[in-house]
Design a protein around this nucleic acid. Structure first.
Length: 463
RNA sequence: GGCGGCGUGGCCGAGCGGUUAGGCAGGGGCCUGCAAAGCCCCGUACUCCGGUUCGAAUCCGGACGCCGCCUCCA
């Protein structure tokens, strides 16, 4: 049984599925107004790991992540750069998928665009207006939060205790400062759609309700996102579903954020680091390993030194892959736990990892267990128990693969010249000619190879 | 003002009453012609003050410090 923290209840509980064996999950995706930042990287990695784990455990997963392609910031950027909103959105969506591919994040089964669902949103908003849970003002349509009795559930606070509108723009037409915009009336030069309550564009909170229910159906299993979406975004989604009398997410799950020093990384603080930038400079697996090494609900600090730390750890993992010539997993490979030959050597490890992962995705403990096993596999091989060590190494590879982390054995192909140097060096070593052997090693090093002497001779690889 | 989280060894980071977390860095050793890789050993930490308990990093109370949400944000 998989257990997961449910934000709505404030406790870890059994993941109770609408349909046994099938997980429907909706993850709040990016607004494509800029390059993805580290925070985007974390949430996609966290939920990618969850999705992979569910799949590995034999569940069939329907994974939906939206793309918000109509938004104030997109419009602002388009104005500033004198181009169309669709152009801006297309550019940054392409950047988004590029970053996701490099991170090794599996593509969602569906990635709906807000602009493709406007008629459905209009219909929903119209029904709210009709039933007076929403009202029209001079600048748009607002949802009346007072009509939802348990508004504030996700915030963990009743409506009355929310410090309503302390820093929100004054708007005398709103019945409550907490009321949120469902629809924004058209302004000159802005994208807009027709609606019975006036030409305009949808507010942010409606798209996710319409798209999640549209693609996953009522009472879908899991609604995920960054902790900062808990309130008000997710609360507002929930409020709309309540108002529409449609069963919404059975579980709510939120990941912690990325910190920069002691502060949260955020757009408003302007202290965000581009994910695209990070991925160009470092092994993308390093970020995944950092995410795995901390709990998904804890904040993580991403810095050059923590990345470097992870890259060093990856070297040790790759050394295992080289030693046992392990196949590369991760990427779009989806293995199933049930298809693995959990041999005597690996069964305990497997059961340990399963116990950790199924307990609210405790990846740090799982990773710790895998590193323990890594030492054990190497030690076992050092003692000459090669077949047994290999089975354990294969299990380690499978389990890291289940979390989307690839162990890489292969490096660059060895060119003719390097191969010749290797042969010469082996001959020199066989002859006990250490001076030549050292000289030939140096030549290989100069050519960018890492030289290691194995039992069967010189082995070279790229760093 | 309301609500929530956090303070762990050089750094990162688990932990949910008692058994080694783990990683990185550092020291020692084994192996090796020398290296590299690998393995073994080593740090004995938990903001502070009380309390509960045979026993607390872990529970309770208090203090101090830090962060976040209540507003666009993953």
């Amino acid at each position: 049984m998989i257990r997961l923290y449910d934000t709505a209840r404030g406790e870890v509980r059994d993941l109770s599925l609408r349909t046994p064996g099938q997980v429907s999950m909706y993850v709040c995706g990016p607004t494509v107004d800029n390059l993805p930042h580290l925070g985007h990287g974390r949430f996609t990695l966290v939920w990618d790991v969850a999705r992979r784990w569910f799949t590995f455990q034999g569940l069939s997963v329907h994974y939906v992540m939206n793309i918000t392609d109509v938004d104030d910031k997109i419009i602002t950027r388009a104005r500033r750069e004198s181009r169309s909103e669709t152009d801006v959105a297309a550019e940054f969506e392409a950047q988004w998928w590029d970053a996701m591919d490099r991170l090794g994040v599996v593509r969602p089964d569906d990635s709906p665009h807000a602009t493709d669902y406007v008629p459905e949103m209009v219909e929903l908003i119209a029904s709210f207006v009709e039933r007076d849970v929403a009202y029209v003002t001079s600048d748009g349509v607002y949802f009346d939060v007072a009509t939802v009795p348990d508004y504030g559930l996700l915030a963990g606070q009743p409506l009355g205790s929310l410090r309503a509108g302390a820093r929100v723009e004054e708007n005398d037409e709103k019945r409550s400062p907490l009321d949120f915009a469902l629809w924004k009336n058209v302004k000159p030069d802005e994208p807009s759609w027709p609606a019975p309550f006036g030409e305009g564009r949808p507010g942010w909170h409606t798209e996710c309700v319409v798209m999640s229910l549209g693609l996953l159906g009522e009472g879908f299993d899991l609604h995920c996102g960054g902790l900062d979406l808990k309130f008000p975004h997710h609360e507002n989604e929930r409020a709309q579903a309540e108002a529409a009398h449609r069963a919404f997410a059975r579980h709510w799950a939120h990941n912690g954020w990325v910190m920069v020093g002691d502060d949260k990384m955020s757009k408003s603080l302007g202290n965000f680091t581009s994910l695209t930038d990070l991925l160009e400079k470092t092994d993308p697996r390093a970020y995944r390993l950092l995410v795995l090494r901390s709990h998904y609900r804890s904040p993580i600090d991403i810095s050059p030194s923590s990345i470097a730390d992870a890259e060093r750890a990856l070297e040790r993992l790759d050394a295992l892959a080289r030693r046992f010539d392990l196949p590369e997993l991760g990427g779009d490979h989806f293995e199933l736990a049930s298809s693995q030959p959990w041999a005597e050597e690996s069964l305990e490890l497997y059961e340990r990892v399963v116990a950790y992962m199924n307990d609210d995705l405790n990846t740090p403990l799982a990773v710790a267990g895998l590193f323990d096993a890594l030492s054990a596999a190497n030690a076992s091989a050092d003692e000459g128990h090669l077949a047994s060590a290999r089975r354990l190494a294969q299990a380690i590879n499978s389990l890291f693969g289940a979390m989307g982390l690839a162990l890489l054995a292969s490096s660059h192909p060895i060119d003719e010249a390097a191969g010749q140097l290797v042969r010469e060096r082996d001959a020199a070593r066989a002859a006990g000619n250490w001076a030549d052997a050292d000289r030939l090693r140096q030549e290989l090093v100069v050519r960018g190879w890492i030289v290691e002497d194995g039992v069967s001779g010189t082995v070279i690889r790229r760093p």
